[in-house]
Amino acid sequence: MNKKTSILHSNFLYTIIAILIGFIIGAIFLVWAGVSPMEAYFKILDSVISKPKNIITTLAYAAPVILTGLSVAFSFRTGVFNIGAEGQFVVGTLAAALIGIFVDVPAVIHIPLCIIAAAAAGALWSLVCGVMKVKRGIHEVLSFIMFNWIAYYLSNYVVNIEGVKKESGGEATKDLLDSARLIVDGNNCAIFIAVVLAVITWVIIEKTTLGYKLKAVGFNKFSAQYAGIDSGKSILTALAISGALAGIGGAVQVMGMGGRVAQFASQEGYGFEGITVALIGASNPLGVIFAGIFYGAMKFGGSKLTMIHAPSEIINIIMGCVVIFIAIAHVFKALFLSIGKKKEAN
């Protein structure tokens, strides 16, 4: 295979093409809204990279979606579909917040403690659905959807409990203690946790016997069983890890950005954004880092679009289109390869 055809075979190319098409379709909508696409896209870019402070904020936006993206990517690679990352994220937020508010220990202990609590909460939330799947054959998509909502109302309930609720003003919890915040010199450093976990996830999937086992069960449960792998246990392990990652996503959100948990008016969408991030990152943990940063940049930059009177929803439209064109990347691949072949023949 020569270099040119190997580029045509690489999935990366088609992700880039999908992103480009997403921006083109976004541009059409912007023109419809009476906004110059160039101006809007420049605004997004400018808000992200103009100041170091903004780059840091972008990365702060990226950290939680990288983690939910990892959660979903891990589930895709191990043959389950974690559509419940949303709920696991929420209970993770809650667990981290409660530990962050009520346990007063030095930061070196406090931060890991919050993260472990969030991971445990997320893992547990996911495991309950896993056990129902393995023991009773209940469709995980269904139970995940239910658990997303239970988490949502649970969080709203806890937020409003006397003693947890902030004393004055607003329906939110008290602030986390400073020792539980992921803030160094006023800068959010959640991204480091996200990147480290991405690398660890990559190692687990690609290099370990655990990853081998989980993938084998994910691809073909029956063969794995035949070969002596306990498929039920593997599915539960995979779901626990996936849930823990989403839970940690919730932790870094509240420990970094929020500082407290506010009452939700509607689902936050981090879990669903995680699906998009996982797809753009081709379910590869390292790809997810870049996909998450891209998403973070779009979210942060998009929020500045109102300054030029452009609807910030354009971001959702663009991201949705990107996902659609990733879904049909094989069509482009076949097209390009056949063109490539014809050229070679001539």
Partner: peptide, 21 residues
């Protein structure tokens, strides 16, 4: 599943977008 996820972004995106314009 991927296509459905995309629809879930595009649908609400366009909905709010329409309200804005």
């Amino acid at each position: 599943t991927i296509a459905g996820t995309a629809i879930n972004f595009i649908g609400p995106g366009i909905a709010v977008f329409l309200c804005r314009i």
